[in-house]
């Protein structure tokens, strides 16, 4: 554990809770992509199956359970409890376009040809692109509410901080995980455009609007 990874994890947890709290307190899922949230739930379930047979630390176990339960709760709020407020008309990104390539990539790049390792690789590739339905929705509606922007900023920062953590770990312990690093870089690049808008608009008190 180093400061970069800790900050990355804090940012990740913050993102998850910002989103849950926003939906709960406004009693609305407007502007939130249910499809992205389903993809994140698949990511956590596929990656954290190791909960049952490998113990890393209490910290890891608690975080894994937290991500699985929070993402399931988010999907439940969007598709069941506050379904009437969910903006399905604008949430039209075809998720098979990210599910199928992630699965194919997992069959090509993995650390061993076992079910759990393939699921792990699949989850890493899927996580990199799971936000696409949400970004697509923001582009389609042309704007995002400020809390949604804070959520996206915290979620994007998490993988960017992990990149610093990987650089640090490479120099201090010789640790190098090429699959996670490549996917993590792609994931962070996807947020770059949003980061720019966030800094130039949201942080200056304006609403995030995308040019047509």
């Amino acid at each position: 554990m180093n400061l970069f990874r800790l900050m990355g994890d804090v940012s990740h947890v913050l993102a998850v809770f910002i989103l849950l709290a926003k939906i709960w307190r406004t009693r609305s899922a407007a502007g939130i992509s249910g499809r992205s949230q389903i993809l994140f739930t698949i990511v956590y379930l596929a990656r954290y199956m190791d909960l049952f047979f490998s113990f890393i630390s209490l910290y890891n176990t608690v975080m894994k359970l937290l991500f699985i339960s929070a993402s399931c709760a988010t999907v439940y709020l969007i598709y069941f409890k506050f379904r009437a407020t969910y903006d399905g008309n604008h949430d039209t990104f075809r998720i098979e376009f990210v599910l199928v390539p992630s699965l194919l990539l997992a069959f090509i790049f993995h650390y061993s040809m076992s079910f759990f390792e393939l699921a792990w690789s699949f989850s890493i590739f899927l996580e990199a692109v799971a936000i696409l339905p949400q970004l697509f929705m923001v582009t389609k509606t042309g704007e995002a509410e400020n809390i949604t922007s804070h959520y996206l900023f915290a979620l994007g920062s998490y993988r960017a901080l992990y990149i610093l953590n990987w650089i640090y770990r490479y120099y201090t312990e010789g640790h190098f995980d090429p699959i996670a690093v490549c996917a993590g870089i792609v994931q962070t690049i996807l947020y770059c455009d949003f980061f720019y808008l966030y800094v130039t608009k949201v942080l200056q008190g304006r609403k995030l609007q995308v040019l047509p």
Binding site: D9, H12, D50, N60, F67, D177
Partner: peptide, 10 residues
């Protein structure tokens, strides 16, 4: 790369 398959990150 041996450390990679340990998956000690989230």
């Amino acid at each position: 790369v041996s450390a990679a398959a340990a998956h000690d990150e989230l």
